[in-house]
Amino acid sequence: MRVAENGKAQRRARAEGPAAGDPLEQARRLLDAGEPGLAELSAAVGLSVSHLQRSFRRRFGLSPADYLAQRKLGSLRASLREGRDISAALYDAGYGSPSRVYETGAARLGMTPARYRAGGDGEDVRWSLVYTVLGQALVATTQRGICMVELGEDADALEARLRDEFPRARLQRVDAGRDEFLAPRVRAVAEALAGNAVEVPLALVGTAFQKRVWDALMKIPSGQTRSYAELAASLGAPRAARAVASACARNRVAVVVPCHRVIRGDGSLGGYRWGPDVKRGLLARESSGQAPA
């Protein structure tokens, strides 16, 4: 049944004009329409497997397999958010069995499909407010690690952002110094915001491409910057500068995941979730080799 569906999807994608002269665009359309294997995809677009792999990653920032996995996960997310039955949502998204999404998708959802559909229902998130060299920060963590670091002087606004991100999770505010689990994590974040090199356990939830961008950000040395285009090129996806900028905007962990080190190609700052003044100050202090004062 699946083979027949893939064959129909291939014929349909070939017939849809714009992709016809571009094998990579044709490959993307085939992945959007069905679930062809790599060898099948290679034969359909007339490229060798290795050439297809390299070129597809360069164009779209993901391997064909990762692109397909992300497309399926996006479909699953949409169905779950609409309140659809979990089994039906899994089947419609293309997962052959519930075990497949638990093996591959749950890590990217950050929780099980049932919890995701329920807005994080049942997830434990502990959080605290702490004053740092950059001002007030909200630090939130799951059992896996830090899931949010937000900066701002309005405590109510910070809490509202946390609740927007985890609308049905069990949110527990604690005094950082009185919680043996949260306290060392809050101290580590405070040290990181002060510009000190410390190990901070993270629980980053995002798509495969977003995680690649965030990993690349954490490899940029303090005192250096990269343009969005340079970061995209370093990921083997030189045309994905806009996707890189979008991933930076979706970063929820201030400074620890240093999206402030990415600027525009003309040298201007570009956007920053926590404001241009914070970004400008961080870059100035890092370039001078000083910790924030």
Rank of each mutant, 00 (worst) to 15 (best):
A9L: 06
V186Q: 06
V189Q: 10
L52A: 10
G74V: 05
G152W: 10
R84S: 10
Y91T: 08
A19H: 08
R12P: 00
A243Y: 06
S48W: 01
R84M: 11
R115V: 00
R100P: 02
I220H: 04
F60Q: 03
Q210G: 12
D266G: 04
A114S: 12
R117C: 03
S97Y: 07
S97L: 07
A249K: 08
Y116R: 05
S227M: 07
E159K: 14
P36K: 03
H51L: 07
A291I: 06
T207N: 12
F209H: 07
Y116S: 06
S75Y: 00
A240C: 11
P23Y: 00
V189P: 15
V205Q: 12
R54H: 10
D215C: 02
G122H: 06
P292I: 12
E35N: 07
G7Y: 04
R170A: 13
A169I: 07
A203F: 05
F60W: 07
Y102M: 12
D179S: 13
A176Q: 11
L204N: 07
A160Y: 10
L217Q: 09
S99M: 09
C147N: 05
D32G: 14
I146H: 07
R273L: 14
A176I: 13
L52F: 04
L171A: 12
G122L: 04
C259T: 09
G34N: 01
E230Q: 14
A106G: 06
M111H: 06
Q26G: 11
L24D: 04
D92K: 08
R173I: 07
N6M: 04
V149F: 04
L129R: 04
R84Y: 00
D266A: 08
A197D: 15
K211I: 09
W127E: 07
C147P: 14
E40C: 03
G135V: 08
S246I: 02
K72Y: 01
R280K: 11
K279Q: 15
K219Y: 00
A15V: 06
R81Q: 14
E25K: 07
L129Q: 03
R117P: 00
G195V: 14
C147F: 00
E191I: 00
V133Y: 01
R161G: 14
S50H: 11
R29E: 15
E180C: 03
G206S: 10
R71V: 05
